[in-house]
Design a protein around this nucleic acid. Structure first.
Lengths: 156, 156
DNA sequence: TACCGTGAGTTCGGATTTCCTACTCACCGG
DNA sequence: CCGGTGAGTAGGAAATCCGAACTCACGGTA
């Protein structure tokens, strides 16, 4: 059997089709950090300039970034996150937390996010409805399209 | 200036180096859903078999998945998430929530995750220390390595 | 026994992407 | 006039990805 031509319909896949290409999420990281200029992005991300240009176009088209002039004469631009872009920050936070936890010995975190409460941020995903921390065992997947089953009873 | 050879040290980048290749997070999605067999993965993800084989090896090496036999004679395997793999689920949840919100008109969500509280899951990222929902403006980035500044005052 | 089907991959050549280096173009400051 | 900066584009080599076909071990069935 070949790779199916119509895989499971899924918002994860759709989102990754927009921001899952190499470097895209790092662009978003820098832009959220306030480093939105082209050469800053090149330096801080380490991506070739041409891919960066391609990624930026795509992210702007998708409404995740906007390209704003910060100086006329000479024309200079800066990329900034839109509201939709900012709403992707939780993805970055959870990725960073995972990397800090699993890829590094403690004490060598390359960056700490400080929350307004004064503590270093440890992000926790909770349920909007009940407020509890979400754990794998507490989830049941309900595919809405026919034919797309899920095998595990405690599926997520 | 060329693409810098030493970009910003960052756990987001490190994590993406492991799970950011094409299809990797979809593998994790299926495995978390309980669909851990090779041909299920091929069908549900829509990736070529050889790439899937490569991704699976990499994810197993990284300790995100384990390859477990579910039948001797004939030998048959199933991939399952490790604890570390399960800890990546928040990334999937936030990606899915974003896609549902921004890429689809309401009412056509391809999958709903039901939380044990009985409601459809709407994931919210909160601060472990104070419990509040984390918002962009409440974060301050503190790079730990020298030279890696952040320009915005309200950087995240 | 012969044959077909399934699970779990591997192999192959070709199509895409990415990468790297260099180049452009517009402007500014001295 | 000269060098530097910001924001890219151009071109070819290198790495990845893709689709289809092939393997191999087994199990069922007729």
């Amino acid at each position: 059997m070949a790779a199916s031509k119509d895989p499971r319909p899924c918002s994860i896949a759709d989102t990754l089709a927009l921001v899952g290409e190499k470097h895209s999420l790092l662009v978003l990281r820098e832009v959220c950090l306030g480093n939105g200029r082209f050469d800053q992005l090149v330096r801080n991300i380490g991506a070739p300039r041409d891919i960066l240009a391609t990624r930026l176009r795509r992210l702007v088209d998708a409404g995740i970034l906007v390209k704003q002039p910060y100086s006329e004469r000479p024309q200079r631009f800066e990329y900034r996150p839109t509201q939709a872009g900012l709403e992707l920050e939780p993805v970055l936070m959870t990725l960073m937390a995972w990397g800090d936890r699993h890829l590094r010995g403690d004490g060598d975190r390359p960056m700490v996010l400080e929350h307004s409460c004064g503590q270093a941020l440890a992000p926790v995903v909770t349920c909007r409805a009940c407020g509890d921390e979400v754990r794998h065992e507490d989830l049941t997947a309900r595919p809405q399209a026919p034919g797309w089953t899920v095998t595990g009873p405690t599926a997520a």
